[in-house]
């Protein structure tokens, strides 16, 4: 697995199971958390087996982002467009959540393929909601609409109290990610991973991919950003998105890759740590083997049966120990 999937596996599985045995009318109540602190809650009651309540809680937004009514701007419209007909937004949302959707299974399309596509779309709800502002900006780029906020720095939330920045221009969109890691080893690995990542972009096969850059200091585009948003211990990655990257169906993929970029990097950092540990274990094993070969096999093997891992106490010693 190189890229993380855009939909929540568990949500998709739950909905599929639910749809399959809708007649059984079992109650469901699940809570779970995904990366970037996105919490889900699914509830189905006995009374209305056709209705599923799906609640979503988003990461705490940093002060510089635009977050009206607890949701990113344009999210409500995006949800309405994406799930027309089957979903109703409940207002106010469930306590402790940012958004509650009511799915109505009786309105799902009977066609198997279309239903599956819709379920996958519902399972990628985080992307629809959190990626809504990014998607709107990229759509402007694709349709070459000139909106009022050209050249303005837009901050979008992607992790608790962290944001990434988007600078829309007429012919391109620049996306800048400040990368932060908690652990010092992770920081080092991430830094070299990102440098390698930028390097890999230069190979011949990837000429059409969005150009990307890494720098340890904030790039010039961010000079208007608040100072506290500019502390990143693993540097800054910027992508330049051209209209050809957001044509037609590519838009969805671009939005999903960009909105999970931090998770992608952190996943690969963990994978490389795992890989290194595998190598280390193998090395230790080979060293132990070498050590074992070097052992002179004198009459040691005979003694094995008598070798005890504990010291035998005589009765007297045992008593002494007991009283002390």
């Amino acid at each position: 697995m190189i890229l993380l999937q855009s939909h929540s596996r568990f949500l998709l599985q739950t909905l599929l199971n639910r749809l399959r045995d809708i007649e059984k009318g079992v109650e469901l109540d699940y809570h779970w958390v995904e990366f970037d602190d996105i919490r889900y809650h699914v509830q189905v009651s006995m009374k209305n087996p056709h209705l599923v309540l799906l609640s979503l809680s988003l990461p705490t937004p940093p002060p510089e982002t635009d977050f009206p009514g607890g949701l990113p701007s344009g999210a409500v419209e995006a949800v309405k467009v994406a799930y027309a007909g089957v979903v109703q937004i409940l207002d106010p949302p469930r306590d402790g959540f940012n958004l509650t959707l009511k799915l109505n299974f009786s309105k799902f399309p009977p066609n198997e393929d279309r239903r599956q596509a819709l379920l996958v779309k519902i399972a990628s709800v985080r992307e629809i909601v959190l990626g809504a502002p990014l998607r709107a900006l990229l759509k402007h780029l694709a349709t070459k609409t000139i909106s009022s906020d050209m050249d303005q720095l837009v901050a979008l939330v992607h992790r608790p109290n962290e944001s990434f920045f988007v600078i829309p221009r007429v012919d391109k969109v620049i996306v800048v990610f400040p990368m932060r890691f908690k652990d010092s080893i992770d920081t080092v690995l991430a830094t070299s991973f990102l440098q390698e990542f930028v390097q890999a972009r230069r190979t011949a096969g990837l000429n059409n991919a969005p150009p990307c850059l890494w720098s340890s200091s904030p790039p010039l585009e961010l000079n208007k950003a608040p100072v506290e948003a500019l502390s990143a211990n693993a540097g800054f990655v910027s992508f330049v998105i051209f209209p050809r990257h957001v044509e037609g169906r590519k838009l969805d993929r671009t939005v999903s890759s960009l909105s999970t970029f931090h998770a992608y990097v952190s996943y690969h950092v963990k994978c490389s740590e795992g890989f290194m540990h595998t190598r280390m274990r193998r090395r230790v094993e080979s060293l132990i083997e070498a050590l074992d070969r070097a052992k002179p096999d004198v009459a040691e093997s005979k003694n094995l049966a008598n070798n005890r891992s504990f010291k035998r106490l005589s009765l007297k010693e045992a008593h002494a120990n007991y009283h002390s």
Binding site: M1, Q5, F35, A263, Y267
Partner: peptide, 24 residues
């Protein structure tokens, strides 16, 4: 097999549960 076990956990966490292990 610890190598396989580590990989298994890796997929459990990132592909199935899709959570950040630092958060839980």
């Amino acid at each position: 097999n610890w190598d396989a076990m580590e990989r298994f956990w890796q997929h459990c966490i990132f592909n199935y549960l899709r959570c950040d292990p630092e958060d839980h």
